[in-house]
Design a binder for these strands. Structure first.
Lengths: 195, 195
DNA sequence: CCAGAGGTTGACTCCGGGTACACCACATTC
DNA sequence: GAATGTGGTGTACCCGGAGTCAACCTCTGG
């Protein structure tokens, strides 16, 4: 019976609560109640609530990047172009989840708008990681200007998430996917499909 | 000497603070200090902080819609297609402002994620107003499917704002504008320009 | 055997949202 | 000329959340 260490349980439980209700809206006590420890115990794991948030963002960044890349590899086979397109299929799957509340990292960015804030930094890193991954796929796909395509696709991804979050467009992922396919085709040439 | 009524000053000052630092991050006291009144006086104007936020969102929705439509009419002349494109020029101007901190309404949506929350409702209304305006322009521009074009353009607008807010793409408006022009052309026919 | 990690209880500070009460000044209206 | 409403003031207060502190417990490994 290897018990799940408290630190992990804190990261999980607090992450879920923050995602559902927002970072500032969730009190420490609420987190401590669900995990079942006391305040003093908490402060032996994390220096502050902010520290906890940073740890959550780092942890989820890593986890989500792995999950997303795995999904993309499976759905996109060995075709970099198809993999780029799979990114939007992933979004569609995600948006169908009734628990969807936007992107944790984008949410963190708006709740902690100061650029010096460690939380803000941690949240921005996720965007950079995703952009780097897209950039690599764009290069592999033979895009004429991988950088430009990356900015376009990232804007579509961000826009789809924010649109769906706003509640206006329930099929935001499909909307974005249609645009993405056009962009990918025109950037990589209409036919060629490379590794 | 018609003094600016306190209610207006509260809306302005609190709106600015909320935009800069976030809704939950700004305390009532901070607002009261900048306006120069006491807590008791505040509660004679608004029932609560939430009530104040709703009033600010309503107020700014109206103001921003007027400003945006005026900008679009000036830059787009009497050409609905050019007016749609002008929307992205407006974004570019906005993004150049160093005070840019994202969209107040999108920010409100992430800080108050509960759909029942009056603040959430008020923030969503702004998106609906803007979408309605875009829809009308899309119809005037002779789009084959105005609804589809509206969803695409709204996604680009939202994506540009969120991308710029994320800090990844400083030229997000240009990126979105390029995509928008293609979409508008293909939806309305490559040449025709109507009122 | 002892140190250290992870835990407990309980009391405490400070700050923010919100309330209650008593009071003041001025303009309008009966 | 008194009454009332509006927009203020000041002070004292309650509650909940973040964070601190001190004293103590228990299990585990060198």
């Amino acid at each position: 019976m290897t018990q799940v260490p408290t630190r992990e349980r804190l990261l999980d439980a607090a992450g879920d609560l923050f995602y559902k209700h927002g970072f500032q809206a969730v009190g420490l006590d609420q987190i401590l109640d669900t995990v079942g420890i006391t305040k003093t115990a908490f402060y032996k794991h994390f220096a502050s609530k902010d520290d906890l948030i940073v740890a959550i963002l780092d942890h989820r960044d890593q986890r989500e990047m792995e999950e997303w890349m795995a999904y993309i590899r499976i759905r996109g086979r060995d075709d970099a172009r198809r993999q780029l397109e799979a990114l939007f299929e992933l979004l569609d799957d995600w948006f169908k989840n009734p628990e969807f509340r936007g992107c944790l990292f984008l949410n963190a960015l708006t709740e902690f708008p100061s650029e010096n804030d460690p939380i803000n930094r941690a949240a921005r890193k996720h965007g950079e990681h995703l952009a780097a991954a897209v950039m690599e796929l764009a290069s592999h796909a033979g895009a004429a200007e991988p950088g430009a395509l990356t900015e376009q696709l990232m804007l579509l991804v961000t826009g789809a998430i924010a649109s769906r979050h706003r509640g206006g467009d329930l099929d935001a992922a499909k909307t974005a996917e249609a645009m993405a396919k056009v962009l990918i085709s025109s950037a990589c040439g209409p036919a060629a499909r490379r590794r």
